[in-house]
């Protein structure tokens, strides 16, 4: 099927460029967030990249708080944070709050969204929500082996074009596709591979008028805020946490990073 498969699975291969750093992360060049639905193999991807042995298990919700680790790739130090799995970013549960706060205020350079290939539609609900708040993201289409077993094929090039971010198919349990994932994370972080996430949310004309007003005000108060549109939408939806972030100026830190 794939002529390079043998090489990719060979544990010696990534050693050339990849140094797993475990938890030894004093300073780093890039911060990577690992997000996704529960039980899509985020922790397996995390372990494969960092060489840590974060306990993985076949049931949703076992990553309780966030786990951190690091790796060195192409002479750059990456710090990677494994976020709890969530189905949405509406912040209705503790897990969702941890994940959303980190993506909003932790200012990761790259967000890797791990999705289960066999259940793409449901996973895309979260992917689209994450793309609303982040500029630089990579979709890791994991558990490809299971998808193949179930007779599911995915046109990754088309998916990438639809979403506006790179898509990397992997089977992390078997180590398949991890090299491509590493290279993509690296390239997105360095800016050599650009992302322009598609933002679909549309609504009535009342909404777009209201949005224009609010976005204008937000951009004036928080110069350099990159996702003003998303913040405006959350304000209109009455999201308490975002209202609070505007009130106490925490939102400024978001603007600062991009300004």
């Amino acid at each position: 099927m794939n002529p390079n498969k043998g090489c990719e699975e060979c544990p010696l291969n990534p050693a050339e460029n990849l140094v797993r750093l475990g938890v030894k992360m004093d300073q780093h060049d890039f911060l990577v967030a690992l997000a996704g639905n529960p039980n899509t193999g985020k922790s397996t991807v995390f372990n494969a990249l960092t060489g840590l042995h974060q306990h993985t298990g076949n049931w949703p919700g076992k990553t309780v708080a966030r786990a951190e680790g690091g790796f060195l790739y192409e002479k750059k130090r990456f710090k990677i944070v494994d976020l709890p799995g969530t189905y949405s970013l509406l912040s209705t549960s503790h897990d969702e709050e941890i994940a959303r706060n980190f993506m909003l205020f932790g200012q990761p350079h790259v967000t890797v969204i791990v999705a289960e290939a066999s259940r793409l539609e449901r996973n895309l609900n979260l992917v689209l929500q994450i793309l609303e708040i982040t500029e630089r993201a990579v979709l890791c289409l994991n558990l490809m082996d299971e998808a193949r077993r179930h007779g599911i094929q995915i046109d990754t090039a088309k998916l990438s074009a639809e979403l506006g971010i790179p898509v990397v198919p992997t089977a992390a349990r078997q180590g398949e596709g991890l090299n491509a994932l590493l290279k993509t994370i690296h390239d997105v972080a360095m800016g050599t591979l650009s992302c322009s996430p598609k933002r679909f949310q549309t609504g009535t004309s009342d909404l777009s008028e209201a949005l224009t007003i609010l976005v204008g005000k937000l951009e004036k108060a928080f110069p350099g805020l990159s996702n003003a549109r998303w913040v405006a939408l959350r304000l209109l939806a009455g999201d308490e946490q975002i209202i609070e972030a505007v009130r106490d100026g925490q939102l400024q830190s978001l603007a600062g990073a991009n300004g």
């Binding site: 793409l120 609900n125 689209l128 007779g151 599911i152 094929q153 995915i154 949310q201 549309t202």
Partner: peptide, 18 residues
């Protein structure tokens, strides 16, 4: 709108052997 888009995209890219 998110659900609609997710469904539309997945219909376009997933080829499932039923």
């Amino acid at each position: 709108s998110i659900y609609q888009n997710a469904s539309r995209i997945s219909d376009q890219v997933v080829i499932a052997d039923k």
